[in-house]
């Protein structure tokens, strides 16, 4: 009974917040942000892809916590799956049922192409659609296909997790470098009036770090699922 009442109260509260926030549409939906980013975005951040410009320069503080969410998710999966971490050096799941020959052959053809496309999406994150997270997910998918090709493939989850933690540390350090050059935290460390080509150094290095971190995190989650239930 108490649960039901508290649920109804919570729903009413959400409805109240929704109605009050929807009362002033012109504050929420206006062109101010769009005009600002399309006028200053390219010269401020040096990124042709404005989405990358926003999440790696204007809103870098938010992106750091987004990267931290994946780290926490991986840690949670490892905590909930009851085995010790060392035990999870995966031998592949389909050890009893045979993988079809056609599937293996197509995986062999697709694997290098997918890896190349993932790396392209990561490195070109500031020039074309994509970026660290998307490219990292594609690279992770390519690595997962590798499991189907070679059944005896093993991954040292312990090492993967350690590398992921150090990559996150590197992410925080590189994004804090701007404190010494620009005098403020969490933005591009190359000065604001510098050439646009130099600003791409920061964007590319951040994209590569985020991509590697996401790929390793997804591979770790996948390996945990493989070993689960044995």
């Amino acid at each position: 009974m108490i649960k039901k009442i508290s649920l109804i109260l919570l729903l009413l509260f959400i409805l109240f917040v929704f109605i009050t926030s929807m009362s002033s549409f012109s504050d929420i939906y206006n062109n101010a942000g769009k005009i600002f980013f399309s006028q200053n975005g390219y010269t401020d951040t040096g990124s042709v892809n404005l989405v990358t410009g926003i999440y790696l320069d204007y809103r870098l503080f938010d992106s750091l916590f987004e990267a931290a969410i994946l780290l926490i998710a991986v840690s949670g999966v490892m905590l909930i799956s009851e085995h010790t971490i060392d035990e999870k050096n995966a031998t592949f799941m389909i050890d009893k049922q045979k993988t079809p020959e056609l599937f293996v052959t197509f995986s062999r053809i697709l694997y290098p192409i997918m890896l190349l496309f993932g790396i392209y999406v990561i490195v070109n994150g500031h020039l074309s659609p994509g970026g660290g997270f998307q490219g990292g997910a594609i690279v992770a998918t390519a690595i997962l296909i590798l499991y189907y090709i070679d059944i005896r493939k093993t991954v040292d989850v312990h090492r993967v997790l350690t590398i992921e933690k150090f990559l996150f540390l590197g992410l925080v350090v590189i994004s804090s470098l701007s404190f010494f050059t620009r005098g403020e935290l969490f933005t591009n460390f190359i000065p604001l009036d510098a050439n646009i080509e130099y600003k791409a150094i920061f964007l590319t290095s951040m994209n590569i770090l985020i991509g590697a971190k996401v790929a390793l995190g997804l591979v770790a989650i996948f390996t945990a699922f493989l070993k689960e239930g044995r």
């Binding site: 994509g130 997910a137 992770a140 996948f222 699922f225």
Partner: peptide, 18 residues
């Protein structure tokens, strides 16, 4: 297009595999 790449990679490759 950025969201579309993420949706293809996560929603139609990794989640079905898991």
């Amino acid at each position: 297009p950025d969201v579309a790449i993420a949706e293809v990679a996560i929603g139609s490759a990794i989640i079905p595999l898991i």
